[in-house]
Simulated scan of single mutants.
Amino acid sequence: MPKREAIIPASRTALYDKHRYSAAIRSGDLLFVSGQVGSRDDGSPEPDFEAQVRLAFQRLRDVLEAAGCGFDDIVDVTTFHTDPEAQLETVMAVRSECVGAPPYPNWTAVGVTWLAGFAFEIKVVARIPDAA
Rank of each mutant, 00 (worst) to 15 (best):
A24P: 02
G28C: 09
K3T: 12
L64E: 00
V125K: 07
I25Q: 10
D48K: 08
P105N: 06
P84M: 15
Q87I: 09
L31E: 03
I25K: 07
Q52V: 09
V75Y: 05
R59S: 14
V94D: 02
I7S: 03
K18T: 14
G117W: 03
A126C: 03
R12M: 04
M92R: 06
I122R: 11
P102C: 10
S96K: 11
D72G: 11
F71V: 02
R95P: 00
V53C: 05
D41V: 03
L64I: 03
A116E: 10
R20N: 12
D130F: 13
P103E: 11
D130G: 13
R20M: 12
R26W: 11
G111D: 14
I128V: 12
L64P: 02
A101R: 13
E65W: 00
P84F: 13
F120K: 08
N106R: 10
P45H: 09
E46T: 15
D29V: 02
Q52R: 10
Q87G: 11
R95H: 05
P2T: 07
G43E: 08
F57A: 05
G117Y: 05
V75R: 10
Y21C: 04
A109F: 03
V94F: 01
I25A: 10
R40W: 04
F49Q: 05
Q58Y: 09
A24M: 00
I7Y: 04
P105G: 12
I8M: 02
S27F: 15
V91N: 00
T90S: 08
I128C: 05
E50F: 02
T108V: 15
M1A: 10
M1R: 07
V124F: 08
A67D: 01
A132R: 15
S34G: 08
V110C: 15
S11Y: 00
V37A: 11
T13A: 13
R20E: 13
A10R: 04
H19R: 14
W107D: 13
A93H: 10
C98L: 00
V124I: 15
P105Q: 08
R20W: 13
Y16L: 01
G38D: 03
V63E: 01
G43T: 01
V99T: 04
V91A: 03
V37D: 05
